[in-house]
Nucleic acid binder design. Structure first.
Lengths: 152, 152
DNA sequence: TGTTATATGTTCAAGATTGAACTAAATTCG
DNA sequence: CGAATTTAGTTCAATCTTGAACATATAACA
């Protein structure tokens, strides 16, 4: 007669669901705030990563974004067409295309990052500096943990 | 000459990026683990929410999932066709369709939730019970904070 | 060297997701 | 009551995302 223990009764499950929910909410708000800049979320993610790591290859970018390479093959031409991104050949490895922002792309990306930073700052204000640091610490530990097993 | 302060220099920004990354990684792993059950991530989310709140309407479900109503209109017929979900008319409000799991749907959903719980348990093992509870607390505070402004 | 295996990027078609326009039912309020 | 507004759900076309098959380039190694 004992009722099954549902996962929502388990603290780790319930707490992780809260992480997922918070993240989804932030993505939704961020998407809405980027629209006025003419940027989709996916485009912003691409630009932000190129800004952070100029010269990275499409493959490296795909791994950072956790998307397939084909996804970038579909999206990058548009960013190039708009004059925000350049794909430069690498003389040392003629397979790869190294990604760089143009001046205009850099300007736009910094504006978009500012919007993103505002959203994040604003919603994290309810956390103290120390609590915020703990969140980062915990999440990096979780990400490291996950990297260990992808294949198990 | 002073270099611009990039958002990655800001603790709140950097720490939130860690949240996003961890969440994305978990979603990817979970998606792979659910495939053997014949379930997509989106389908699992639907089933799990019906399991948690039987009898909820499509609109309520859409709000919980942060997706559009049309999304559910596209996905539910398939879940119904497979005999996992029933959409029952509500005599008190003939607009709504209340969602319920069938016996088979319940069985499948519990199996899928078990998979999800295993993934979560496993990756959260690097956090102590107390740290895990803190994560949940912080994230719920963030979600509450966000609910306040959606429109600002 | 030459053959095989790996790695990068593209294409294309299938599947998923979205938003706007729509129908029908319920609610508001003059 | 009855017209106007709001709400629930559907449809459909446009957009996004994915994975498999492919072409080309590099690496490994016999």
């Amino acid at each position: 007669m004992s009722r099954d223990i549902l996962p929502w009764d388990m603290p780790r499950f319930r707490n992780w669901i809260a992480v997922a929910k918070a993240h989804q909410m932030v993505e939704k708000v961020l998407g809405a705030r980027l629209a006025p800049l003419g940027l989709k979320l996916a485009q912003h993610d691409i630009l932000a990563n190129i800004c952070r790591m100029p010269g990275l290859t499409q493959n490296e970018l795909a791994e950072r974004l956790l998307v397939g390479r084909s996804n970038l093959s579909m999206l990058l031409p548009e960013l190039e067409r708009r004059g925000w991104v350049e794909r430069r050949a690498d003389p040392a490895d003629r397979r790869v295309r190294r990604l760089h922002l143009t001046g205009e792309g850099q300007t736009l990306t910094l504006a978009a990052l500012k919007v993103q930073a505002e959203v994040i700052e604003r919603m994290m204000t309810i956390l103290s500096d120390q609590e915020c640091a703990q969140v980062g610490d915990y999440m990096r530990r979780i990400a490291a943990q996950m990297s260990l097993w992808g294949t198990d």
